[in-house]
Design a protein around this nucleic acid. Sequence first.
DNA 1: TATGAATGAGCTTTCATTCAT
DNA 2: TATGAATGAAAGCTCATTCAT
Lengths: 193, 193, 193, 193
Amino acid sequence: MITMDKREQILEATADLIAEQGLQDCPMAKVARHAGCGAGTIYRYFSTKDELVQQLYLHLNEKMAQHCLSGLSDAECIRKRFDHFWGSFYQFLRAHPREVCLFDQLWASPVICSELREQGMQTMHQEIIRLLDDGKQAGLIKPLADELLLTMTFGSLFTLLKKQLQKPGTFTKPVQLQDLLNMCWDAICVHSH
Amino acid sequence: MITMDKREQILEATADLIAEQGLQDCPMAKVARHAGCGAGTIYRYFSTKDELVQQLYLHLNEKMAQHCLSGLSDAECIRKRFDHFWGSFYQFLRAHPREVCLFDQLWASPVICSELREQGMQTMHQEIIRLLDDGKQAGLIKPLADELLLTMTFGSLFTLLKKQLQKPGTFTKPVQLQDLLNMCWDAICVHSH
Amino acid sequence: MITMDKREQILEATADLIAEQGLQDCPMAKVARHAGCGAGTIYRYFSTKDELVQQLYLHLNEKMAQHCLSGLSDAECIRKRFDHFWGSFYQFLRAHPREVCLFDQLWASPVICSELREQGMQTMHQEIIRLLDDGKQAGLIKPLADELLLTMTFGSLFTLLKKQLQKPGTFTKPVQLQDLLNMCWDAICVHSH
Amino acid sequence: MITMDKREQILEATADLIAEQGLQDCPMAKVARHAGCGAGTIYRYFSTKDELVQQLYLHLNEKMAQHCLSGLSDAECIRKRFDHFWGSFYQFLRAHPREVCLFDQLWASPVICSELREQGMQTMHQEIIRLLDDGKQAGLIKPLADELLLTMTFGSLFTLLKKQLQKPGTFTKPVQLQDLLNMCWDAICVHSH
DNA sequence: TATGAATGAGCTTTCATTCAT
DNA sequence: TATGAATGAAAGCTCATTCAT
């Protein structure tokens, strides 16, 4: 924290405020106060409030992608790779509840247009698509569109993360990661009868 | 439409505007104009803009619940009931893209606090929980928390609906409902080996 | 003043402030205070500050044109018509020093683009051009371009009005209107030798 | 240009920007960039933005006076001196359209108060007043106040210069300098009948 | 009861000026 | 001496809400 540069300070302050108060209650003055700088200073780093939010989105994606893609190895079997990837994804966001709030807010905002949404996810998407294609070729994964398979897994995990955050009391027993991964895998894998 | 009362007109106008322009670009003056009444009139029916949005949320939930719960019969087998319920859910939202936008916006807004979110979903939740419990007793469904099972199915389907709306080009082949239901069922059902 | 409508009140307030403090020191908040209304109210009548200033410009021109063109008669001889028109012009602005300040500010501002400047002057220009053409046909006025003749007269009179206002002490003896009109006429009339 | 000192560079940059973009759109940061120095540097030469603009005004006047007063000789006859002086004035500004814009902007700005306006013009005024007085003594020029005569000539010529710049299309035939000088002279000279 | 003009707090953004380097 | 990042006051504008009609 000691040597965080001003740009990062502003991004962090914005992230905190959006997560705590929502995108609607996040005026530049508050961001500035929370970042410990004048309001005008923000505009040296971001030309617009929209751009600040967009940059924050890309920043978050990068951090998440870095975490999720580290340690992945094609040497492992499909299922291991699947668990590794989505397990990392889930655990990263469990450990960073602020980021869950943020993604939820940002994805719903018109400021993050669909091109940007894509752009942010690209790195992670490419990796998971490679995994899905390998699985389909091996006959392990249902022969459905990548985008469809991907969205099912992503949607169920992210929605669960959100719910755990918004209504923590709901889950009396702690949710077991392996249960989740099994469900996600069962959803897309080929079942022999 | 002819005999829609003013309250409903206002709710409909709000729904249209939020879906088209986003919750952020939906001033009361615009709502009034679109609803064909004066701005002051809205305040006869809703004490506050927040309340208007909250009532809209409950209104939407009611309409959706009505559709999803109609025709359900305990006489059918678990899997049929599962397909019936979630199939209705999916098809209702496919046929009402405006509502997908709306739910997406409203769930992310701080105006819809978690109690309200629950309250809106209650009717549907009760039904699906009954279904899940029946399934678990029959040994067909994984013995995991209802809330967890429910969220997995709901999250994957809703996320997919959103994606189809936001980036329609993604899905070159039309998504088959039965594929979706199979995936959702496979995720939560017990697989014998 | 009792029954001045709000739009006019705002225009008058703007006129006062620009004349007294300059276009640069005329924030909407000041205008609102001086007009006795809230800042937001101005925007019900003028979509933009620029539009307010533009409408003020057209408003001023109209008032001036009304005054200068009243009582003109083609029955009079050229010189009489000349004196009548430019005399009215001069006396109107002598009686309305605020308007001199205003025109000076507005003509120099980029808000009043050249099309608008033209548009405002059009009525008066048409009349004076008719007069000049009649004079030229009668061999009384130099056969030069209308725009040139017009600008010479206009420029000298307006500049003088400005100077009288900005540095009233300069003119120890009061300036005689007839002297001015003689000079202006001498400038453009044909002199026999 | 090679040996222009920083102060002059800043003045020139300011002149360019005001002429191109207007006094309102001329922030110090832009001036600095255009002058090739840091924003802080400007404050070594000018204590304030207002002072910078005021100094620019005086700088412009000096340059113009130098040009207009060169080559004047009391040996010539009154009319020749008149034509020489105002001809120089007109031709200088025709050749320096930027300066026309600048004077127009600066005269209308509250930054150039009336004392400063006078101060800038002083040198030229003294010369033209001497000329007018000589002309009046010789019975050639109307016995009116110097300031009045001066303003008539100046106002008509400058207004014309401005119009030629702002709406060049107006003047289909090029304006002849001698026509202008004749008009200006006719305005103030004594006409025998 | 229904209206929509009026309000003013609060938003984003700009920019003259300062000051640590 | 020269720099340009930082500042924060002040600008234009929006909009939920009120209230006289």
